[in-house]
Every structure is written in C-alpha cells, then in structure tokens.
Amino acid sequence: MDFEPGKVHTAEVHSEVCGEDFEVQYYLPKNFTDLYKYNVIITFDSQDFFRYGQIERLYERLRKNGEIERSIIVGIPYPSVEWRNHYFSPNGEHHENMVTFVGRELIQWIDSTFPTLKMPHSRVLMGESLAGSFAFSVSLAYPMTFPQSLAFSPFVDRDFIKRFEGEPNLMQLNLYHTIGLEEDDFTTIMGDEADFLTPNRELNEFLQYEPLEYEYHELEGGHVWKTWKPELEKILKHYLQQ
C-alpha cells in the first residue's frame, strides 16, 4: 500500500460477506505521521467528495487553522450508476450485505491499516443522494460503531422512514441531514422524475421529536454539489471541531 501523504490513493479490500473485492480510496493528510492517532471520515460516492466537494483541500485548510482534529479520509467510490442502485440504495439487492461489509469488515481493515483512534465518536460517515441513505443505514445498523452520519439529499421513501421507527438505539446517533428546496421536482441521474423534498421533510418530522442529536437544514438549491459543497465546512466543524 502507498502511504504517501497529501494524495488520494486506492486499495482493494476483500469482503467475505459480499464475496467480492471493493475499491477503496483513502487520503492521508500532508503532515501524516504514525506518531499520532486519527479520526476517520468515511465517504460513500467518494470520488464525488474528492472531485466536486474537494473535501481533502477543505480538511487541510481547516486543520492548518487549528479548527478541526487530525483525520484521515477513506471512501468507497461507485463504478457505475447501476452499481449504486444495487449496493447503496436502501431497496437494492446487495444493500444489506454492503452495510454489513462497512460495519464489520471495512472498519476492521481501516483500524488495522491506519493509526486510528478506534472510538465511535472518532468516525464520521458521509454520503449524498443514495450514498446519503446508505450512510444513515450503516449508522442505524451499527450505532455503537458509527453513531455520526451526514446525508446530503438522501433518497427517502416510506420503507426507509420505517427503519427509524421503533429503533431503540436512536439515542446513540448524531445525524446531519440536508435537502435542497429545489428538489421537489427534478430529474435523477437515471432520468426519472423525482420529489426528494417531501419525503425528506417527512423523515425530519419524525426525527426532530426523537431522542437523538439531529441537525436538519433545507438549503437553497437542487440535487447537485453546488448546493452541498458549501455545507461541508460546517459539517467538518460540527463533528471534528478541535
């Protein structure tokens, strides 16, 4: 493996539960040294967080200014739009196995490969759209391992909301949830007409009265990184403020 700081690298991680290998991206900060322990930011749709969110540049600026704690960034990219529907979508055929892979196998690989703090509140999950739904799914399934999750404009339907209802470990969670005000009528990457705003408001109506830490924001804009990117600084400070 390549441990050169300041660059995005790739590795393959084998999953027994899924029976296949997954590409994983990782970024070690410019001043990385194994003399320190690090928080872990785990992104889903990771190539978009690097390309459009420029999350590594934002991290370096905030860290240089002493505003956030030491962290490494690890992520799972999507090889195709169809793949996202099968693995990240809460209705996808491989979704549950993928959740188990992250909750058991990926975190074991991360903690055995990098000098991490290995504590629940030293980990943050992040995703947008279907990957945002996936981030919340992982936290719901493994609240003691991944209590902290961000979802930009997640896909939400009635069945997804039901996952939260009656969940006894909601009090363990610290969720950050956003939706764009222009997402009431837009065309998805698959070419389908969709309304994300209404079901996300319904999820918020449920979660705001539950015993968990929960931030919800309706943003000016649509289902695009132009809407999401300005929120990243707030989110990194929210979870990693020094």
Rank of each mutant, 00 (worst) to 15 (best):
I189Q: 12
F88E: 10
L35Q: 07
L197R: 11
S139T: 12
S137I: 00
D185F: 11
S137N: 11
W228E: 02
P199M: 00
S112D: 14
Q25T: 09
E105Q: 06
R201P: 00
V40C: 13
R84G: 03
L197P: 03
Q54G: 11
Y87C: 05
N169Q: 12
T116F: 10
T198R: 02
E105S: 01
F146L: 11
A141M: 09
R158L: 09
S133P: 06
N169R: 13
T116W: 09
G92V: 05
Q208I: 12
G166L: 10
V156K: 06
P90D: 08
V17G: 00
P120A: 11
M98S: 09
H238W: 09
L62V: 05
Y216L: 06
D192Q: 12
L35R: 07
M171A: 15
H94L: 08
S149N: 02
P115A: 08
V24P: 04
Y216P: 07
G6I: 07
E4C: 01
I55G: 02
F196V: 07
H121D: 14
D45E: 02
T178M: 14
Y27P: 06
H217M: 12
G180D: 10
E202F: 00
Y216I: 09
P199E: 00
P230E: 08
D2T: 03
L117Q: 14
Y38N: 07
V138S: 04
G180L: 04
T116E: 08
T43E: 10
S80R: 12
R158G: 00
E213S: 14
T227F: 04
L181Q: 15
F164D: 02
L125F: 05
V156C: 12
E218P: 03
R51M: 11
N39F: 10
T10L: 08
R163L: 04
W225G: 00
Y38R: 03
F160P: 15
E202H: 00
I41H: 01
S149V: 02
R123P: 05
L212F: 09
W228P: 06
E233D: 09
R201T: 01
V8Q: 13
Q208G: 00
N31F: 01
V8C: 08
V13Y: 03
W109K: 11
S80I: 15
Y59C: 07
F152P: 04
R201F: 00
L232G: 02
H86K: 13
D159L: 11
H14W: 13
S122D: 10
T33L: 04
L232I: 15
F49I: 07
E96F: 12
E12V: 00
F146K: 06
A131W: 03
L35H: 01
F155T: 14
I73V: 07
V24H: 05
F101M: 11
E96V: 06
F101L: 12
F134T: 07
E213R: 10
R51K: 11
Y78F: 04
L181Y: 09
S139G: 08
R104M: 02
F186I: 08
A194R: 13
F101P: 13
A194P: 03
F101V: 09
T116R: 05
R57E: 15
F32N: 05
P143C: 02
L181D: 15
A11T: 10
D157W: 12
R123I: 06
L175T: 11
P77Q: 07
N169H: 14
F44H: 08
T187I: 15
